[in-house]
Write a protein that binds this DNA or RNA. Structure first.
Lengths: 225, 225
DNA sequence: TTAATAATGTTGTAAAAACAACAGAAATGT
DNA sequence: ACATTTCTGTTGTTTTTACAACATTATTAA
């Protein structure tokens, strides 16, 4: 339990527990059987078919939400990072199996809470549960909007349009024309559902045309985009 | 307010209000300024850029959630039907503008509730609000899972794989190999982000190969799919 | 019933993507 | 510093898709 102390401030200010008083949070962390788990890059945190009963809060690192298609191709649905929750939607619908994998994209530290344990104990009656569920509702709303955004990105017709849509959406999100993306080329291709080499080719083309500049994961969009 | 009576039973048993006592629901409908609105096929219920402050519950009909791509192509994100809520994610994130259109896919009857009005009045304190937010959390979770499902559908590489993935997901959802889909051919193409005529061609091919049978919107999957 | 309109299916052609194979650059480990 | 491995970019070929144009079948209206 001592290790929790180190992250207490971060936990308290995370969207899940935002607005909770210290004593409420302390009690909740105990009641939730809170513990910290570490995952190495590439390690599976959640597998397709799992039933999720825990709330996962990312304290350090990043996690890819993936799906292997029936024919073996990898689909990256989204990448989560610090302060995000993993597979929250499956916690509420507890009789629905996870249809996604969660894979550590780097070495990752996660706070794990037994949601089930708390709801059974406090019967939804305590104030901290009320704050929590409000927060969870907000978080899920934002996730929902993110997923719609992603659908827009991958629904473009050409590789070019997918790239431009993705990049300009990222720029808008960060309120800057200059930003880093969390993906390497292969991951970006798996996120946009396109071939890596074809994507590389189109990126160069966009750079030659002066629409974008990039170096590794750092992108700069020209005003024209 | 009399018109509400006609739908009272349906409203009471809808996922949003599920588990609410009669007096709670009655009070809530008043406090929410509940009213019924009708939309004709093709009419816009929500537009990109709107700020959503109402909860919309579909009582009759169906609604397409759409987005016009920058280049003018139509994307159907999902189709909602009776008992579904429209654009719920944007109600929670009230300072985020809608990035989607909601268009009546048929003549549609909708219950409209001012979410804002209630939250400001009851300060999240009344029991009915607690039941409501729990329900909303559940609904958003399911929507989330649906969106992930849709991402899987459109992330397949070929038209054939998109169709087979979509159809077998539908079959699983309805627990039957025989089912109707809510789309005509053009809408299905816009949902899967593919060309209608190419899709028609592939559908015939699948039928010739004996993998599927179809007539209009009614599909039957062979055991091999 | 017939004409008009809409929806769906079919085909050929041009465009785009996937794929494979490889070259060069960057990162990693020893 | 060197060898090894991983990542990224490039090119040519094959496959798939979009698009356009039209045929056929349903649906609607007169």
């Amino acid at each position: 339990m001592e290790k929790l102390e180190k992250y207490y401030h971060q936990i308290k200010n995370s969207p899940v527990f935002y607005g909770m008083k210290d004593d409420e949070l302390q009690g909740l962390l105990e009641c939730f059987n809170a513990r910290i788990r570490n995952f190495e890059e590439g390690e599976m945190i959640i597998r397709q078919g799992d039933r999720i009963t825990n709330i996962y809060l990312i304290l350090e690192g990043a996690v890819n939400i993936e799906k292997d298609s029936y024919w073996g191709r990898r689909i990256i649905i989204t990448q989560l990072s610090v302060n995000d929750n993993i597979a929250l939607a499956f916690v509420a619908s507890k009789n629905i199996e996870s249809n996604i994998d969660a894979v550590a994209a780097q070495n990752t530290r996660v706070l794990v809470l037994s949601y089930e344990k708390c709801t059974s104990m406090c019967q939804n009656a305590c104030t901290r549960h009320k704050v929590l569920i409000n927060n969870l509702f907000d978080i899920l709303s934002k996730e929902n909007i993110e997923l719609i955004q992603k659908i827009e990105n991958v629904s473009q017709k050409t590789i070019r349009d997918k790239l431009l849509t993705y990049l300009s959406n990222e720029a808008r999100k960060r309120k800057s024309n200059s930003f880093e993306i969390p993906f390497n080329r292969q991951d970006l291709a798996d996120y946009l559902n396109i071939d890596r080499s074809a994507m590389s080719f189109e990126l160069s083309k966009l750079q030659k045309e002066g629409l974008i500049k990039y170096n590794k994961n750092k992108f700069v969009l020209s005003a024209r985009v």
